[in-house]
Design a protein around this nucleic acid. Sequence first.
RNA 1: GGGUCGGUAGCUCAAUCGGUAGAGCAGUGGCCUUUUAAGCCAUUGGUUCCGGGUUCGAGUCCCGGCCGGCCUACCA
Length: 495
Amino acid sequence: MSQEQPPTPAPDSSLDGSDQFAVRQSKLERLRESGSDPFRSNWDQSHTSSEALSLLPEDLEEGPEVSVAGRIVALRLMGKASFLKIIDREGKIQSYVRKDEIGEDEYADFKKLDLGDFIGVRGPLFRTKTGEITIRAKEYRLVSKALRPLPEKWHGLTDNEQIYRQRYLDLIVNEDSRDRFKARSRIIREIREFFWARDFLEVETPMLQSVSGGAAARPFRTHFNALDCDFSMRIALELHLKRLLVGGFDRVFEVGRVFRNEGLSRRHNPEFTMLEAYQAYTDYRGMMELTQSLIQQVAERALGTLQMERTEGDAIDLSGDWKEAKYKDLIIEAVGQDDWFELPKAAMLEKTKSMGIEVDPELEEFEITNDVFEKVIEHTLIQPTFVTHIPRELCPLAKITQDDESTIDVFELCINGQEIAPAYSEQNDPFVQREAFMKQVGEETQELDDDFLLALEHGMPPAGGMGLGIDRLVIFLTKASNIRDTILFPTLRPS
RNA sequence: GGGUCGGUAGCUCAAUCGGUAGAGCAGUGGCCUUUUAAGCCAUUGGUUCCGGGUUCGAGUCCCGGCCGGCCUACCA
């Protein structure tokens, strides 16, 4: 971890350079003694780095004067002239500083700047011998001092722990990380644009809930002193968004954080970002069209392509209409026998054992089957696939398929070997809903939400609903390998 | 939670069989007016994650702990 020295007391003229924090602090002291405090300076920017770079067309050698500001990330000092690179929110730009143009004293001060300092630079654009567009500085000013050194310039920062705990350092020196988080922001922006354009109302529902339902996961619990009662952090958005369908907001969506008190892994962070959308007078088939259009439009607009390269294997092709497959057909194909769903439990266990899958013998038949799906099938679904006709036991909130009592009107969208988005024809029969809830209430992670059932009894229009894990979407859209690379500040053990 | 690998200078990494802890970058002092990981000369900097143990001697071996990576488990 980082070395936390206490601030060194007084600057020492006999500094030997071993303690970079102390050296920089003493530079700051000297500046203050000479009457300038960089922490109280500012700078008027006329352009960002990339705007400035666009002002010098190929056929010209000299461009207009610009004024930019940013953090120094490269410094090449020479006797009477120097090059430096600064980085701002859009990228890097080089500047050239000459002693004979800014003056002898100014140049002496300039050479005391450190990597990491924020400066402003003003001057005309020109092209160097090697063709790089560069600002010839007429004036510069230190606008904020950096007292700690930057990570190494060539390898950047590679220590995972430091990347997560000091994300700002990662963002300063690792361009791919910067780009990934910018892409995440664009993706979320495009998701909102998509729903706004379809006349959905964006809403916010409670994160603190007395009953956290809508999914089967352990919640984080906390206590509210004013009311002296326990609350949970939400584990899903579903039940409150459906209350809004009851209330007449018949197209709603929310993008928000949910919290699940489960394990950490490459694909799980205890707080993550969920999109849920509900549309009245449609069903899971309507949600299929919506989900496909959503992801295609977001990829096209945020990333400019529907072909997602992967580090290994074929690229993911998001174009066209996506494949559909029935859950039962996938299972039968995977186990290689047509009568799987008629088999007694013992035979199922025997079969899974022969396939090399570990299954808890206490599980019920549908759970064994779902283990087969999760352990054998899911990771093979790389290209976008809507898995439909899922066993009813797996989801209590969806409508039962009319001509097959054993399944529900649901799809699970799998991409990149992961479940990305489930969608249902939402259950709006309060009696069937209560019955389905009661069956699950015995389970440790399930609580009965009577208030939600009361709302259903007032009537909820027929509707399709969809949920999408944004972090997982970002993982495959940005070729990240770990959910932590898509969350700016992932959950870590306190240091 | 279990398994496994790792933690050495500000950063990226070395250190043979257990035998004086090193390099590059960064820093410091010089030289250098078009550099591109600038170059050249000189140079500072270490609680080897923490605590025990074995040993004449431990970065290295043993035990315990802390933090992290990966795998796995839990997770509709």
